[in-house]
């Protein structure tokens, strides 16, 4: 094997080794960064157990989104016959931010 041949093999193997090292390094950083989340799990599980929580507080703007598992299947469409699911929390994208003032609470 001449010098050029050896160089190509070594270069490719070196590049692949670098990529493996980068992948492993990033995986380690990722797992250590989320250690705080994992440490909080026992306390969170106790909270779930004591209060009897059944859902994650992710989508809080409609009852069927806030408590997805407890909602009746058709609650998203229950406002009137053949109603379409209209509440924005059920969708992916937030509504545009309007500049209109915050409405007053009804007396």
């Amino acid at each position: 094997m001449n010098l050029r041949e050896g160089f190509l093999v070594r270069a490719v193997l070196g590049l692949l080794t670098l990529e493996i090292a980068a992948a492993v390094g990033l995986a380690l950083i990722g797992s250590s960064r989320c250690e705080r989340v994992k440490l909080a799990r026992p306390a969170n599980r106790r909270l779930v157990s004591e209060l009897g929580l059944a859902d994650l507080a992710l989508w809080s703007d409609a009852s069927y989104c806030r408590h997805s598992s407890l909602a009746v299947f058709f609650s998203a469409h229950s406002d009137h016959p053949s109603a379409m699911e209209h509440f924005p929390a059920g969708s992916m994208v937030p509504p545009p931010s309007f500049d209109n003032p915050v409405p007053e609470a009804r007396p």
Partner: peptide
């Protein structure tokens, strides 16, 4: 706490 926000935020 912030760590429990996924359950308690609202």
């Amino acid at each position: 706490s912030c760590e429990s926000a996924i359950l308690t935020n609202d």
